[in-house]
Design a protein around this nucleic acid. Structure first.
Lengths: 408, 408
DNA sequence: TTATTAAGTCAATTGCTTTGACTTATTTCT
DNA sequence: AGAAATAAGTCAAAGCAATTGACTTAATAA
């Protein structure tokens, strides 16, 4: 009625939405179960055999699924299982960190096909944007070399960088992550690559990766506790990534901790348990070349400074796990880190015994805390997984109409 | 293929799901915007005028919406606005607390039509179940007296009680909330009333209420910080209530706090800022008759013990708000309490200044912290709002098929 | 050898949204 | 005053994806 006042409403849907959802459900089911026959899919999705047949036929023509040899399962006609075709789709993931940027190309099932890395010069986007675009271009070219029709089947570019996003920045980081936030990064990348671009923070990216190929595969409620330069939680709630009202949900590194006997000043969790805190503890320069390797050696040699940091950090993380369990009530918590694998593993081992929480249930199936991917590339992998997930995973928003029809 | 191994998959959808969703979207839009014409609805939902006309006609016949007088809005045919019919649906809400149980009847727009209360004898469900069923029956009869067709339009019974649910209970509460948890409450209520029954914890119920008629109305990301006998957070994420993997998300009262100078022992937030902590601070018996009124008087008279508790609790809650903002990144945090209104208000006023957090954004619209409903009946209201929401609000699960067809 | 069971297809039907033309009612322009 | 423009809303037909029920195929069990 009044065209001045904006009308708040959710979007409706139609048969296109229905069909899109059902396609996604099929793909998701194949991803989770490996291979399924049409009859299996019909039972699992509650659709009719005929509907499943129609959709599977479409998906096969689109090159997203293939049939396997028929299998006899007792009485009745043998079934023909289908599985996903890895080459059915590709995506590129980009991780922007303080000192380094990584790019990865993955396929529909999350296999990494290409990886490349470049150092980021200090000074933020002014100097870094070209490095990044070149890196993406490089990965894209390599991808075209190893996979047929890669360009045609490229569904998007996912970007992961440390959050939080969109704050009034008084964050005077010498590496100027803040500067990256003000820079029109997504627009620049979209223009420079011609791809759909989406952004997530590094903890969320880890969760995305764990969901596609890791410990959160097929789990509807999981939280990744990510120990990177900072600390964050990547949230999978109701089977979908949750980013919060402004994309900053899960920034548990910024939770303030009251002063305690051990730590007489108030501080954030991040100050006490992140890799940044480790570097400070060691008196190391985060930008030091080969730091990752040196750290690796120190951990392997049980360097006393590292050991003491692990003990202290594990105690904080133990608390963090209890916090996450209490607040999100997930089915499992997954520990991820961008540090050396051995460090992550030792940290993981130092965290138990877990504190009492509502996760102490008689009916548990998954462990309360498990070790996630320990590959430093997992953030980049998560970045690459995001466009795949957005294009193929069932989600509410995929059902809804995105634009009105010709006639109102 | 293999019938032994369960197949994990999401449910598909069909035209029924589409239609159900579109109906819900219309109702939601009318709830949020008060009144809208068919043309308005078509624009807002991105559906066609014709589709909207069909659905509105249905809804009108179902008695859920009515047309109002046509209004001229400039050039063109005048539009005919529609609004929700309060009597279009009803629900009953039940709050089970330690010492008291309350029941409420609400209509489609959340107006409270009947309220009734009864004392719960100690001893848990053995003694309490009959009291509760009688109370519900009483409310139901009263409702039938004040509203036509109430019985026919009753969509369900919502239950709210303190969580957490389903834990290995070593919780030796003399009022035996634990006993309630083991009692087949939902089954008993469903059998005794013939209604659909659903359960939520009290903080979630508060959020449900705030979402239907309060500060979270139309907000997609909001968290209710609920100060009751315990402390909890009610979560509205992506426009839907979030309950976690086991219905225990948001139990922030159970977050462990490290020992601090002020509090030399480790404890949960609940121990320091809940009404239970206030009763303890005052040396009051929570079961004392007329405690609510006495507390009201004490607060009004600025009783020193109460004032000191408010100061201490506010400090903990200030931290709690920062925690919520950091972890959930909501658009707003809403303070709710089951205590006397004046106490809630004073607590609310004592919490600022808020701690720095990612909620400190240049582009904020809603206040970081606002006061929710201060009515002690708001938990019961939220309980009653749940069936209404479940029946009429747009949600992913409402689109999906719930059972397979005749032919696989 | 025959009955039974299950996978999968075929052709027709159903049901909701969309389309495009049309009617109605009001304001604005000439 | 009359004509043109604009917007709300209806009508009847078309489009489209899932459903239905009968049918075919291929295996095991009796």
């Amino acid at each position: 009625m009044n065209e001045m006042r904006p009308i708040r409403a959710k979007s409706g849907t139609n048969q296109e939405g229905t069909s899109a959802h059902n396609r996604r459900v099929m793909i998701d089911a194949l991803r989770l179960n490996g291979q399924l026959s049409r009859a299996d899919l019909a039972r699992a999705t509650k659709l009719t055999k005929q509907t499943v047949s129609n959709i599977i036929e479409d998906l096969e023509q689109d090159g997203l699924v293939v049939s396997l040899a028929a299998v006899r399962n007792g009485r009745g006609q043998p079934s023909t299982p289908y599985r996903l075709v890895p080459d059915g789709a590709f995506a590129i993931g980009l991780q922007i960190d303080r000192h380094v940027t990584r790019a990865i190309a993955v396929d529909l099932v999350g296999t990494v096909l290409v990886r490349a890395q470049a150092n980021l010069p200090p000074g933020g986007p002014a100097n870094g944007a070209k490095v990044i675009l070149d890196l993406i271009e490089h990965v894209r070219t390599e991808l075209a070399g190893v996979a047929d029709q890669a360009e045609k089947r490229l569904v998007g570019l996912g970007v992961a960088m440390p959050g939080p996003f969109g704050l009034a920045t008084d964050n005077d980081d010498q590496w100027m992550m803040a500067a990256w936030q003000n820079f029109p990064l997504l627009e620049t990348l979209a223009a420079g690559t011609g791809l759909e671009v989406a952004l997530q923070n590094d903890a969320t990216a880890c969760a995305t990766a764990e969901r596609m190929v890791g410990a959160a595969h097929g789990i509807d409620h999981a939280v990744c506790l990510y120990v990177g330069y900072g600390i964050g939680a990547g949230l999978i709630l109701n089977g979908e990534l949750y980013a919060g009202g402004n994309g900053n949900a899960g920034e548990i590194g910024m939770v303030l901790l009251p002063p305690s006997a051990r730590h007489p000043t108030q501080a954030s969790l991040e100050h006490r348990a992140s890799l940044a805190s480790l570097y400070q503890h060691l008196g190391a320069d985060p930008a030091e070349p080969g730091l990752h390797e040196r750290l690796n050696t120190l951990v392997n040699n049980d360097d006393p400074a590292v050991v003491s940091w692990i003990d202290a950090a594990a105690e904080e993380l133990r608390w963090g796990v209890q916090l996450i369990e209490t607040i999100f009530d997930p089915q499992t918590v997954i520990l991820c880190s961008s540090g050396p694998e051995i460090l992550t593993r030792k940290l993981f081992e130092a965290i138990p015994p877990l504190l009492p929480s509502n996760a102490d249930r008689p009916d548990r199936s998954a462990p309360r805390l498990q070790l996630g991917m320990t590959d430093p590339w997992s953030v980049a992998l998560g970045a690459a997984a995001e466009p795949i997930s957005r294009a193929f995973d069932p989600r509410f928003s995929a059902i809804l109409k995105t634009r009105a029809n010709a006639l109102g």
